[in-house]
Design a protein around this nucleic acid. Structure first.
Lengths: 340, 340
DNA sequence: TTATAAAAATGAAAGCATTAAATAATCAAA
DNA sequence: TTTGATTATTTAATGCTTTCATTTTTATAA
């Protein structure tokens, strides 16, 4: 039943040449007579030769496998990033090995530690939000395997990182609220450990400062990233004596939670209370009022990080660098004072 | 810089025993003195031995890699299925190789044909919606690699398939509309080629028949699966002379499109026109009115298909079978005549 | 033209880390 | 002793890459 797949050896026998010549001809990277190469490729195509990845990996040390470590895949941002990664991995002949941490630091650590690193050329990672320890990644890097971090990047590690412009995005979002006449702007933030939480917070603070608006600690709430967290944080905010008149949420899911809570509590979102998010999740066009937000270049982040990783794999001597991709303000109804 | 990883050979030298004994001890599958095994495992743990997947795959023929062929990952259903797959693959020591077809039959075919099948033990696939040809899968199966289809399964192939109960779900959805007093029920369907489109259509028709309601061909529209298709189809429906008073959409995204269009055209969704979807995408709780739907067991489908695939890999003689997982009606506001 | 060096093309064989089949050694029971 | 069971070792095999050696071809100088 199980057909024995065609090997290089078989091609060599058919053409009456040596195995090494076939191997070289197939890889287009050594001195081989163009005529010979042509004949080899012809037979290979004809007989649908598929290289045995394992043999090749074993002999050469290059596996053509990339690991992707990611907290979730069931959300718009991450699944879009993966699309970008997959696209460039595929066109460059790399396979993707998916490692979903469920945003759980222990699981992340055990996954990395149990990883058969010999089977990977490199790793693309977005750390889980409660992982402050990153030794397991450092030792991976020390072992000589290339790692590129994206979006959720650790601060205390010297590696290539790819992010959107979180500071500028947050600054633009906050400024947009200010420009639209909101003056008492709260921020429902994410997990403190993550550097993008810090960057978005900084952008928010900077915008307030620039416009001489008050910064009040009780208007800044750290929690998780879910819609429910958004609901709880908002509830919290509107129990305060001094209530804000706008909310900048660290992401769209929390912003959605905010809108839902505000509506439930009888506020008119937009007219009374402005809301803006971050991501441009498709849900932001569905919710009412539609959600203003900062668009993140998710697909490009995936593409860019994968390209950088492949470069690192090809040349171990490239120095780490940080890439920041621009994000764009998208205005919808949740931040409009006038309309409605 | 690059540390040479620990090999079986190193362990053997340390313990002064042969390589094969170490190999067997590590795999717990041959007669090895329990004492010896204990010592081997001790050293392996101590020195953090990680097996070389490629060497192992080459020698044994088992790669512990599973390919997942999927139209998209940026949607709730598929990303949830992948979560289920990933979970069981991981606990069984399998890696996932992701192949995203972008719902494009040619791309699907070329991906499969260029696949280094030697590097996969099996394949989990959900076919792209315009792929009526499935020869590339058949030849994979003929080559002896295990394939399990899920959700979007081809009809003309004898293989294990895992689906939700599309017929019953559609029947329940339609019946629910009927019970709530809607009598002129339209169906905005998906791509004709896919068997689940057919099954959902059958469920819909069956429910109408059972309640002696009219079946009108112009109330059944086939198109794609996107929100935009939902909008267009709905627009189409309400240009007719005889207009329906309810819509059963093949999935939630189309139902969302329907609701948006209906609202735009001034209809009161629920009170005037009932809408029900299929999937239970989180968006169905966000849209207003909230969307009634049929919940699909996406995570379980991923889990179940992966488990079945692993069984097939372990025992090539298992006969193909079809698994149908139940789906459940979830009632929200879009199908309520009275409320609002 | 011939001899010789240089370059280009090819081949043989070792090696990659593991598994597995075929032996071998050990020891107890018959 | 012989037999059988248990445990361990030797050796071959997996399919490919790569180093080193060899052959063939081409260019250069005598």
């Amino acid at each position: 039943m199980k057909k024995r797949p065609l090997r290089i050896k078989d091609i060599a026998e058919i053409l009456n040449i040596s195995v090494s010549t076939v191997s070289r001809a197939l890889r287009d990277t050594y001195d081989v007579n163009p005529e010979t190469r042509k004949r080899v490729l012809e037979v290979a195509n004809q007989l649908k030769y598929k290289p045995n990845m394992h043999a090749s990996a074993l002999a050469s040390g290059n596996t053509r496998n990339i690991g992707v470590v990611i907290p979730f895949i069931t959300n718009y941002y991450f699944s879009t990033v993966i699309s970008g990664i997959q696209e460039t991995a595929y066109t460059n002949g790399y396979n993707l090995i998916l490692l979903v941490t469920n945003d759980n630091a222990e699981r992340e650590q055990s996954m990395i530690e149990n990883l058969a690193i010999t089977s990977l050329d490199g790793l693309l990672v977005s750390i889980s939000s409660n992982s402050s320890m990153v030794d397991h990644f450092q030792s991976l890097i020390d072992d000589g395997i290339s790692v590129v971090f994206f979006d959720r990047v650790p601060e205390n590690i010297d590696a290539t990182k790819v992010m959107q412009d979180d500071f500028q995005g947050a600054f633009d979002a906050t400024k947009h609220l200010i420009n639209n006449g909101y003056t008492r702007i709260a921020h429902i933030a994410g997990n403190k450990h993550l550097s993008f939480t810090q960057n978005r917070l900084s952008g928010y603070l900077e915008a307030l400062k620039k416009h001489n608006l008050p910064i009040r600690q009780e208007w800044i709430i750290y929690s998780g990233f879910s819609q429910q967290c958004g609901e709880e944080d908002t509830h919290e905010l509107f129990k305060l004596q001094e209530q804000p008149d706008a909310i900048f949420a660290v992401n769209d899911r929390k912003a959605v939670g905010a809108i839902i809570t505000l509506k439930k509590e009888g506020y008119h979102v937009g007219k009374q209370i402005g809301v803006i998010g971050f991501t441009n999740d498709p849900i932001s066009t569905i919710i009412e009022p539609s959600l203003s937000t900062i668009e993140e270049p998710a697909f490009e982040i995936g593409k860019e990080s994968c390209e950088l990783l492949i470069k690192h794999i090809a040349n171990k001597k490239i120095l780490p660098r940080e890439i920041i991709l621009p994000s764009t303000l998208i205005v919808r109804d949740s931040s409009k004072r006038e309309t409605l």
